[in-house]
Design a protein around this nucleic acid. Structure first.
Length: 230
DNA sequence: CCAGACGTTGTT
DNA sequence: GTCTGG
DNA sequence: CCAGACGTTGTT
DNA sequence: GTCTGG
């Protein structure tokens, strides 16, 4: 699954070209993104409109929810079922987004029962995108809250040694159709997420300081062991 | 018809 | 054990 | 995902 | 909102 991630490199001249966004807001580097926090997602809000990066809350709150708290349990959506599940269906059809990241954490259960946090990232540490779904919710006073969830799938490649599930990672050529709010062909959308990327991720064990969501800072992503020379 | 759920993961 | 908060 | 709380009443 | 269960 995916319950914690990073976005450490927030340089606009890097994120803009990578995700095809003209205006990248000022963002804080994040070393321990946790559920319920506001973090940047890429969307196309109406057909033909330019892509935007804006903050949204992690934990999808469906439009019909009576309370935001339902979002606490909607941080992930299984790619095998998201298109059909009542809570995700309408978002899958027309509210898809990219979740901007440059790594995610998984906890490997060791033989001694302890858990070793590991960070999964690209060899060059470049940012990439999780496939996400978003929703717009209105509270009793009518103010809106935009929220999102991250699609998950069976783990592949190096990640499988750590955990059995992982976020769906999109290749850049999938960004266009995935973000198009007019694209309603479920079979095409399903094929995009099924053909996910991420086989080149590398696994880096890190300090247990990432366990506590309050701990931020570059120490979180520092390799626990010395790096092998290339 | 109305009432109630709507989620994932891990663990047992 | 289970729920809430981050 | 993990960390941390988990309760009420009355009195100060 | 929409589907399932009664």
């Amino acid at each position: 699954m995916c319950g914690r991630y990073t976005l450490t490199n927030v340089a606009p001249n890097l994120l803009g070209p990578l995700f095809g966004v003209d205006d990248v807001p000022l963002l804080s580097p994040r070393f321990n993104v946790s559920p319920t926090q506001d973090v940047p997602i890429v969307r196309v809000l109406s057909p033909g409109a330019p892509r935007t990066i804006e903050l949204a809350r992690w934990g999808l709150v469906p439009s019909w929810a009576k309370d935001v708290s339902i979002g606490d349990r909607m941080i992930n959506a299984r790619v095998e079922t998201a298109a059909e599940k009542p809570a995700y269906r309408s978002s899958f059809k027309s509210k898809r987004c990219l979740v901007v990241t440059d790594g995610f954490y998984e906890w490997k259960k060791l033989a001694n029962g302890k858990k070793q946090p590991c960070r999964m990232h690209l060899p060059d540490e470049k940012p990439f995108a999780f496939a996400g779904l978003w929703a717009r919710w209105k509270d009793a006073e009518g103010s809106t809250l935009d929220t999102f969830t991250i699609l998950t799938a069976e783990a592949r490649a190096a990640v499988a040694d750590v955990h059995d599930r992982m976020p769906v990672i999109l290749s850049p050529d999938a960004y266009g159709p995935w973000l198009d709010p007019d694209e309603h062909r479920l079979d095409l959308l399903q094929s995009i997420v099924d053909a996910r990327s991420g086989d080149d991720l590398v696994v880096t064990p890190v300090s247990t300081r990432v366990n506590n969501p309050r701990n931020e800072g570059p120490e979180n992503v520092r390799p626990l062991f010395a790096q092998d020379p290339a």
